[in-house]
Amino acid sequence: MTAVPLTTKKDWTSDQEVRWCPGCGDYSILTAVQLLMPEIERRREDTVFISGIGCAARFPYYMNTYGMHSIHGRSPAIATGLAMARPDLDVWVVGGDGDMLSIGGNHLIHALRRNVNLTILLFNNQIYGLTKGQYSPTSEVGKVTKSTPMGSLDYPFNPISLALGAEATFVARTHDMDRGHMQEVFRRAHAHKGAALVEVYQNCNVFNDGAFGALTKRDSRDAMLIDLKHGEPVRFGVEQERGVIITDNGAEIVNVADVGEDKIHVHDENADRGVAFALSRLAKDRVSPTPMGVFSAIDRQEYGDAASAQLAAAQEANGPGDLNALLHSLPTWDVS
C-alpha cells in the first residue's frame, strides 16, 4: 500500500458548496468526519463514500475522496459489491433513517449479518427531510406530519436493537451535538473489521427541530446520556449518582446508592449480545436517559476477506484458470 501522506481537514474537503439547510445537524457530522480522516491513516485515493438518497446522502459530494451518490436505499448493496471486489479500499456508507431503515432496510440488515467491511453512518433525524417532512420509520407513534394529519400509526424501529437483531458485529450510537464523541465512535467503527453501524442522532431543524433536545443539550447531557465505556460501570448523572443494572427483565436504571456500587453493570462490548440488546431497550422515548457509545463489538469473519480466501484457495488447489481447459471440460469428440 502506498504510504499515507500527512493531510489536514482541508485535504478531505471537496470543492463543492455544501447545500444543507443552515443549522442542519449534518454540518457537524461532516466536520467531525473531515477532522477525523487525517488521523486514521488511509489515503484519500483509497477511501470511498457511498450514499443513497436523502439529505444525508449528499455527504459524498463534500468529501474529497472517491464517492457515489446512488439511489434510494441501495447504498449498502452497492458498497457490498465494491468492498468485495476491492478489499483494499476503505468503504463508508452514509444515509438517513428513511434511506437505510425504510426503502433500504433489507440491504442494511443483510450487509450487517454478512459482516461486509463497511463503516455505516446512519443519520437518524426521525423525519423525512428531502421530501419535506413526512414521518419516518423511526418517528414516534402519533407524529403529526403532512402525510399523517391525525398522527402516525406506525410503531418505530429502534435502530440499535434492529442492528443487533441483524447480527451486526459493531453497533454504536452518537449524536451531532458532541464532535469529540462522534469522532471517537467513528474512529472505533472505522477500526472495526467488518460491518460497523453507527446511529447518529441528528437534528433536522426544519422539519423535526429539537427531536433529541431533551437528551443532547449541553446542560442536560449529564443527566440524560448514559456513556457506555468498555470495562467500566454504566453510570451517569451530574454526580454519577445513577447507574444501570441488568436483571432477568432486562436493563434497569437505579440510584447507585440504593443498590450499591458493586451491583452496577460493568459494560463489556464483547459480551453476550443479550445484554447489549437490553441496553438498547433502556430508553423508551426521547426524554428518558439514553445510552451512547459502543453497545457491541465482536470479532467475526469479515465477508470480503472470506470471499477472497475462497478464490485464493481455489487457485492454490487447482492453479490459475486455464480457458482452453475450461472449454474442454465437458466430454468432447473430434470430427476430422
Binding site: T2, S14, Q16, R44, E45, D46, T47, V48, P60, Y61, M63, N64, T65, Y66, G67, M68, H69, S70, L82, R86, D88, L89
Partner: peptide
C-alpha cells in the same frame, strides 16, 4: 477508486 489523484464523485 485507488487511483492516485483522481478522486471524484459520481451520482
Amino acid at each position: 477508486p485507488g487511483t492516485d489523484g483522481l478522486m471524484h464523485r459520481i451520482g
